[in-house]
Nucleic acid binder design. Structure first.
Lengths: 197, 197
DNA sequence: TCTTAATGCAAGTGATACTTGCATTTATAC
DNA sequence: GTATAAATGCAAGTATCACTTGCATTAAGA
């Protein structure tokens, strides 16, 4: 009879190494421009051999993707504030706050530059999740009778978040403190004057 | 008496070399992902020695910036169509069309990733020019009496263009044929229902 | 305690940006 | 036309970095 011997050893040292590397990478992303980050730096900071990193994650992109998906995991809160405007300001404000941090900037940067297949799949999943959560906000607004239907929700959310990313990434200008309110007002009310009753 | 001997020779060969390099780089940007482009490739395509490229442009970033600023020079047309909506659809549509081309994608990509000082200055000037031209559109709308003032113009334009860049760069999804109309409608009318009239 | 997965270590490969010294070509002043 | 020196070619080299490999060492886990 053959005893099934486990082929993996995920406990103890392995877990510690993994955590040390992820922590080191996270810390470095706050200090070094994401484009300048090297695997050697991360290994040194983590007190781990470079080879080990390459054995656990096959590429640098895979490692950074791993870091950033964890980092951005649960930042999007969509509390029911009682109005579409309040909900959107909360969500957009939270994203803006995150994008102001080095980690948030790194996420936007790497999300836009990663060409890796794995990174591509993760990116798709990431945004699908975000848009799904945003949909809830617009569905609630329909239930409240604020808007007739949620058809514009996806594009509106894309415009809100897209403007933040554009400001940070393409224009390299800071996100003002009131950016969330101003954007939400713009997207909800539009530029043209109107009587709302 | 000392005869002033010119220290530069901008004519003839120099001009040909420069043109050949810029042409080669432009052509390659349509074939190779911008992140994978190498100076060696450009030199080979241009029939010019790699060293020459490094002597004319100090870095790869400087060369690509040069290429792209030329490439995107006069694509933004802002014809007076008679209405704010028409003007914006024209402008946003033109930008969307450009972003659908490999060169347009490369511009967005490199504009977002270039960390070089020179590239930074060029980026600032580029966007300043774009927003300046956009301001004209909103000023015209004020003159027509379509909107009371142009204060929202900059943010509205940023949302329009930002959404396009975000779609292409961060989400890596195509720009639909009707994206310009839908975005302009969103930004002009807003999501909330209203009586206009 | 023993097996072997996980890690360390040292050396190496390959690609690429960028440099340098010297020979060659060719604008351009005269 | 001719001479000067700017622009280019050529060959070699430096530096950095992602990523690999073979072998020795450490420590999970049965």
């Amino acid at each position: 009879m053959v005893t099934l011997t486990p082929k993996q050893r995920p406990g103890g040292r392995t877990a510690r190494t993994r955590a040390a590397v992820l922590d080191a990478a996270t810390a470095l992303l706050a200090e070094v421009p994401p484009g300048d980050l090297t695997v050697g730096q991360i290994a040194a900071r983590a007190g781990v051999n470079e080879t080990t990193i390459y054995r656990k994650w096959r590429t640098k992109e895979a490692l950074l993707t791993d870091v950033l998906m964890t980092l951005s995991g649960e930042r999007l809160v969509a509390p029911d504030t009682g109005s579409l405007r309040g909900d959107l300001v909360a969500v957009v404000g939270a994203v803006a706050e995150f994008l102001r941090t080095p980690g948030g900037y790194a996420l936007a940067y790497l999300g836009a530059t990663a060409e890796d297949e794995t990174a591509g799949a993760l990116r798709d999943g990431f945004w699908a999740d975000r848009f799904e959560r945003a949909r809830v906000v617009f569905d609630r607004a329909v239930e409240r009778g604020e808007i007739p239907d949620a058809r514009l929700g996806a594009l509106a959310y894309e415009a809100l978040i897209g403007t933040l990313h554009f400001r940070i990434l393409a224009r390299r200008r800071p996100l003002d403190a009131d950016i969330a309110e101003r954007l939400v007002d713009l997207v909800l009310d539009g530029v043209l004057p109107a009587d709302r009753g």
